[in-house]
Design a protein around this nucleic acid. Structure first.
Lengths: 342, 342
DNA sequence: TTTTTTTACGCAATCGTTCCCGATAACGAT
DNA sequence: ATCGTTATCGGGAACGATTGCGTAAAAAAA
């Protein structure tokens, strides 16, 4: 069974006109008589004519659709960012196609290739934690496909980029723990290759330095799957708590990681006698026990900014060479999990 | 700047062949000489030729893409269902386009129309809470567009449907509260028009009846925005707690609603001296205070089942008339929030 | 009245691909 | 020598929409 939409030809045949006349009438061209125009418009309305976007894509060599690749949508940060993307895209007449890499470089590549072949006008990319070699993105970019990176960005491709102020966020989270009296603050974070990991680590270090706490490499644990694998986080925590420099607080990076880490922590240490802060955008942090002190990123706005820059790139007449990296401020939300040490 | 992919014409020109020959060679037709075929294949590989899916869509009037519409992806249930959908779709060579209605009938309609025009081969639909009039879906369905409903289904369109066993889930949740000694169990739920609302209400009623508790209409509160608007839930709770038949337990329906409701409850009544259960798929329920007793739906499997049925519809040679409604079992996860009454 | 301009429309090409027809040549059978 | 086969390939229409160009008739200017 096939789904048969009405075309411009049906209108032309019914009204005994040529398709060109119908097309022009529909687009309100001045070179069509008022009477004819009215007829066409009315008939089109009557049979509920909608132009075929596929035919248009073929003709105009643009699809008015943009591709988004994130690690997973079941992530408060990304789902909010996507809402930001959609809020702008729809108003500007673009359709959004969302794909997930699940932190796998392989899937990221397959999805990106598929989107490119599928004729998206541009790409919004947040890299997976495995994506070390991004030459396939580079190729596409060099061939002229507009790309904007958000959240997990890269130095290797020169284009617009949008992120939260990860350095500042990590700095505030760490300093907050210090203000509350914690001294031995561990940092559980994602893959060391990610831009956000590096930036947050730097912010963490900067806060320690400011308050004259010596940075200890062994207090930083990398979970390269970003919290998707429980055992990875369990192991990191176990190692930390078994060391002689047992931490008295933990600062977690990443939305998914923060959740997983807090869950593992609670299982390992049900009283939670360590301080805890994390990067997350969940609204449910206040319902936790203890309620979560977190760094919240302006995910919605990041999504909006990214799509705006992308559309700008797509619709620009001449090649853009002046690229910008926008950094949006984070917010520290203070609750119980990082309360003053007794 | 424009992104210029290589076409079959480029190959034809370079090799001094016609496009038809190249096309056939590429598809391995037997009526092309071995030598020519090899040439074409090698050259295509060399310049990294990829068929243009848009042109194919136009020609074949199918896009190998399927549209999904859910209320929002920032919902544990839906994001898991989408993962289930993707897991099957990609293996079967279908691309998945996700759209959100945000519980608005208007946006649902716009998205569905867009997807249909965009040439999706089929639709996976979970209705918004506002969708009372679904004639626009009916039209599309009658014109031959394959549709499968999941989660929030409807009687008005005859096709495949997939849901959790909402009656059973609600029954278990309610009975669990009864077993724990609660007597005055209120039910906070979504729009009364939704199938899931009706089914869950029936399950709730059935449990009450079994245990000889009289059903009281005033103990059921409908939040038609499904927990997207805090004040709606606040008001429902306030009314309940101010009534003379003050409830001693609450059973919430819906993922989003359960979260919102628990949040409001905690604000209103920080000690949480009432029992609480809800429908949700979050993995973080155990981190809450008190940890959440919930009904979990097999979201991933529901997504998988739905897409399988849809692909079956799409690829069927003749019109399908034998439709099924699959109902998957739910799971009661017992934690603290519905513990025995002191 | 003749010429020019304007109005209002149709023809055909185009986008990338497939596929129905033909067309051509080689070759064997008659 | 003629015909039928088979193998191999090209021409061109089609999918739905837009658009440059051409042109008829009508209106305006000469």
């Amino acid at each position: 069974m096939r789904f048969e939409p009405v075309t411009i030809k049906d209108i032309a045949k019914a009204l005994n006109l040529s398709t060109s006349t119908v097309s022009r009438a529909l687009r309100g061209s001045h070179e069509i008589g008022a009477e004819t125009k009215k007829q066409v418009l009315e008939y089109a309305e009557e049979i509920n004519y909608r132009p075929n976007p596929i035919a248009l894509s073929l003709k105009e060599r643009r699809s008015r659709s943009i591709g988004v690749i994130v690690t997973e949508i079941a992530n408060n940060y990304f789902s909010q960012a996507i809402n930001g993307i959609e809020s702008i895209a729809y108003n500007r007449g673009y359709h959004v196609i969302i794909t997930q890499s699940h932190e796998s470089m392989e899937r990221e590549m397959v999805n990106v290739q598929h989107l490119a072949n599928r004729g998206v006008d541009g790409l919004l990319v947040s890299l997976s934690s495995e994506s070390i070699d991004i030459s396939y993105l580079k190729d596409l970019h060099e061939k002229g496909l507009p790309i904007v990176f958000f959240d997990r960005i890269t130095d290797e491709i020169e284009t617009h980029k949008v992120t939260a102020d990860n350095h500042q966020g990590a700095f505030h989270a760490t300093e907050h723990l210090i203000f509350q009296g914690y001294k031995r603050i561990a940092h559980i974070t994602s893959s060391p290759y990610l831009s956000i990991t590096k930036e947050r680590l730097e912010g963490y270090k900067a806060a320690l330095k400011k308050h004259h706490i010596k940075f200890d490499e062994s207090m930083v644990k990398y979970c390269s799957h970003g919290g998707m694998i429980n055992s990875e986080v369990d192991e990191a925590l176990n190692t930390l708590f078994k060391s002689k420099m047992k931490p008295d607080a933990i600062f977690a990076g990443g939305d998914r990681l923060t959740m997983t880490c807090f869950g593992c922590l609670k299982r390992l240490n049900p009283k939670i006698d360590v301080g805890f802060t994390g990067f997350t955008n969940t609204k449910t942090g206040e319902l936790f026990s203890p309620s979560l002190t977190v760094i919240k990123q302006p995910a919605f706005e990041i999504g909006q900014t990214a799509i705006e820059l992308l559309i700008q790139l797509i619709e620009s007449k001449r090649p853009v060479t002046d690229f910008q990296t926008k950094v949006l401020p984070t917010e520290l939300i203070i609750r119980e999990s990082a309360m003053k040490k007794k």
